[in-house]
Design a protein around this nucleic acid. Structure first.
Lengths: 219, 219
DNA sequence: TTGACCTGTCTCACAATATGAGACAAGAAT
DNA sequence: ATTCTTGTCTCATATTGTGAGACAGGTCAA
């Protein structure tokens, strides 16, 4: 028996189908190839997901992620008031530093980007909202791991750690002592330098405080 | 047998759970009440969805829509290039009119808002991205129904049709003759008047043309 | 303390349910 | 005309999910 992710076989298969069309819409044959399901099963589940709006056919008749996902994402952020409340502080951080800024939360041993603003520079970091990143690399990872050294200092930096050529500085957003999110700026090493904390830590930490205030988090 | 939406019972139940937590996060008992599932089944499926990231526990331990939805929504809009390409034109339309603007696409006999910008006014229309609206009411509905009169004129208006106190003007975004989307402005009747087309149709139609150009749609 | 009543979680015998090989029609490419 | 595709559907089979009920731990009131 193939090991089941969730204990519910049908769900695993349905989610495998969603994952298969996530990177790129594809026809039934490609769906079968990417998921390893039988043709009949892939088709049946795809049609079922289509009925629920999680899948749709694009102009070429291929399967693509459906518009139901938009409403679900909205519900997800609504239940996570941080992202909305943080927006003004994130905008200010981007304008003050001129670099891309991101807000991450921890999710089951990984971190997910729940808000992202891009630098106006031509060469810039791009992290889409919803992107899943590891917890063991990057300044945001250190923050969300609640590394004692990082917490004492109040911020973390990383240089070419998670991705070549990229440097970043992040600070914890706290609520009642616990770290609930990580704010950060990131960009090319050429602009941020090999000691990005020296230049950006102050602004990043200020943004973290502003987010805590905006979200009315308990101190 | 309860009639199944999709033909796959487990999927129906799983999606029912997602729908139940969509409006507001809730504990297991409320989940059972809202979905009509047995306690054991609701719990088992909720845990399964949690394993897939579509569900998570919030700070109070209640079930909420998970962060996986963010990545899916991104995939959905990526496969629907219109929303991104239309953004500059939508911003210009909002700034020119001072009213909320929306972009809708047709989806299975309904319409879904795929982009939404809000008016700076205190009293304004709010349509969240991902919102599902009927096709048989509102100016956007007329456009997406491809009403012949509307297509000849190039735009549609509605006054207190879909919602009391709200007026709107929409125009079709075309590709190869077919209507692929509807752009529109909407706001309180007090500002838009009972003949909103007279004042706003020109700007809305111009926005539609700009979107077609930005998305490089075939004429 | 006690008891009543909540949570969330788990087990297990049962049968309802999803499965997948294969058939089918309709195009597309040869 | 032949040979690939493509999406769709059927049906006998057993794999799979089901739900009553038990359980542990928590909260509340008396």
């Amino acid at each position: 028996m193939e090991q089941s992710v969730s204990g519910i076989g049908v769900l695993d298969k349905a989610l495998a189908i969603l994952a298969a069309v996530e990177t790129e819409p594809c026809a039934l044959a490609a769906l079968v190839e990417r998921t390893g399901l039988s043709r009949a099963t892939a088709h049946r589940l795809a049609v079922a997901l289509e009925a629920h709006g999680l899948l749709r056919r694009d102009a070429e008749g291929r399967f693509a992620v459906g518009l139901r996902a938009l409403a679900l994402a909205r519900a997800a952020t609504d239940a996570l008031p941080l992202a909305e409340a943080a927006l003004p502080a994130l905008e200010q951080l981007r304008d003050a530093t001129g670099e891309s800024v991101q807000l991450y939360v921890r999710d089951e041993g990984r971190r997910v980007c729940i808000a992202s603003l891009e630098s106006p520079h031509g060469l810039r970091t791009i992290v889409p909202t919803g992107a899943v990143l590891p917890l063991d690399a990057g300044s945001g990872g250190k923050v969300l791991r609640a590394d004692p050294d990082v917490l004492r200092r109040g911020w973390a930096e990383s240089v070419a750690e998670r991705e070549a050529g990229v440097a970043s500085v992040s600070a914890p957003v706290r609520s009642g002592g616990a770290v609930v999110a990580a704010v950060g700026v990131s960009g090319p090493i050429e602009r941020l330098s090999r000691k990005p904390g020296a230049r950006y830590a102050e602004a990043v930490v200020a943004a973290a405080r502003a987010i805590e205030a905006a979200a009315a988090l308990a101190p």
